[in-house]
Amino acid sequence: MTTPLTRRQRYEQRTKRRSFAIAAASTIVVLAAVVVLLPMTSGWQKVRHSFFDGSILRFSLGHMLGPFWYDVQIFLWCAPCILLGGLSLAFARNVRSPALFPLRLFSTIYTDVFRGVPMVLWITLIGFGVPGLLQSRNLGRAVIWGSVALIAAYSAYVGEVFRAGIESVHESQRAAARSLGMTSTQTMRHVILPQAIRRVVPPLMNDLVSLQKDVALISILGPVEVLRQAGIDKAKFFNFTPYVAAAVLFLCVSVPLTRTTDHLLQRERRRTGATAVR
């Protein structure tokens, strides 16, 4: 049943085999270098005990799950709010009506200000500042205002991503939708946004993954989340292994997250034809 391969197929097979061999060889060389050379460095024993202490790693992983779940929860309620906030900002920056110029001005200034200041400062300023004004145990909870700071600042980043996506959809799509009699809202909702969002999923994932890491900054305000717990354990044992444990936990979430999105995107791309997303 074997049909003879064409010249092209033979060539491709050869190339594939060679590139696979190169990839395998280079991986092995790098790993070998890590496994063989690293222990030969003079500080390896110390570093290994400071960063890769097996018993501390097991201990940390075990009792960091609770604090890490706290991180995940904060992420889970912040992410949708940020997406909504970012989208609203993107709309506000896209308004064309002269009457709504103040809205556009506001959103532009907002974006500049919130992107221009490091996250840590926003968390500190909002997280300690607002509860100071409120003087209320319930309304002044660190997690509330920490989340607000995260949402406020990240919306500015995400808003720009959405705006870029919206502007990347060609004007002719708007013309086509409007010529059918669709209102500008319907055009945005059914024609522009679906295409824009597909385009910005990769940069959006970037922001979400870094949000997942920045959630840890809320610890400045008092709550014990995973990074703080790692710091406490570090101070207890005078050993950095808890940080490695925290890193492992973060990877456990962010790697599947990014892989899944990539996979979904690719499936979507195949479904709508190879060049549907131009």
């Binding site: 300690f128 509860p131 003087q135 145990r137 660190a142 305000l221 008092g222």
Partner: peptide
Amino acid sequence: GAAQALQNNQ
């Protein structure tokens, strides 16, 4: 930071 949280009644 802890003193600030105390001031804030947190």
